[in-house]
Simulated assay, not measured.
Amino acid sequence: MIIVSACLLGENCKYSGGNNKSENVIKYLENKEYILVCPEQLGGLSTPRDPSEIITTGKKDGHDVLDGSVKV
């Protein structure tokens, strides 16, 4: 079983209300069992919503958010 982000299959669940439809992903999933999920919606975020970005002046990533050195 494959879990795939719903926006990659054309579901309009992206923060902007759009999607990231990928013909490559669709082709890969042909004849396979899969489950669509939207991690953001499962986490309680709405669609559409304001974008979330890491607030920093340098190169930081999610690890820095988790350790509390930068905020989103």
Rank of each mutant, 00 (worst) to 15 (best):
K60P: 00
I3Q: 01
K71M: 13
K27F: 12
P48N: 14
E11V: 03
K32T: 13
G43Q: 07
Q41V: 02
V65P: 14
Y34S: 02
N19A: 00
Q41A: 05
L66T: 06
D64H: 15
G43A: 10
G68T: 07
E30F: 09
D61P: 00
M1K: 03
G62R: 06
G43C: 05
E40M: 03
G17K: 11
I3W: 02
V25E: 12
N20L: 09
E53Y: 15
L36T: 01
L36R: 01
Y28F: 12
N12L: 02
I3V: 12
A6L: 00
V65Q: 01
S69I: 13
I35L: 15
V37A: 10
N31W: 10
D64G: 03
S52R: 15
C38L: 01
T57F: 10
P39Y: 02
V4K: 06
N31E: 08
V4I: 11
Y15F: 15
K32I: 06
G68L: 05
V4Y: 03
L8M: 08
E11D: 09
G10R: 08
E53L: 08
C13A: 03
K14L: 00
S69H: 10
V25I: 15
T47E: 13
E33S: 14
N19T: 07
Y15R: 07
E23V: 14
I2K: 04
E40L: 02
I35N: 04
K21L: 11
S46R: 08
Q41E: 01
S22P: 11
V25N: 05
S16V: 02
S16R: 03
G58I: 13
R49P: 00
G62D: 05
K14P: 00
Y28A: 12
N31I: 10
E40T: 00
K59D: 13
S46L: 15
N20I: 08
N24T: 15
N31A: 12
N20G: 03
S69E: 11
I55V: 15
G44Y: 06
V70L: 11
C38F: 05
N19W: 10
I3N: 03
K14W: 04
I2T: 06
V25H: 09
K59F: 13
N20W: 04
S46G: 13
V72N: 13
G58H: 14
V37C: 10
P39E: 00
K21C: 09
C13D: 01
V72A: 12
N24V: 15
K60A: 14
G44T: 07
V25G: 02
L66F: 09
G68K: 12
T56N: 01
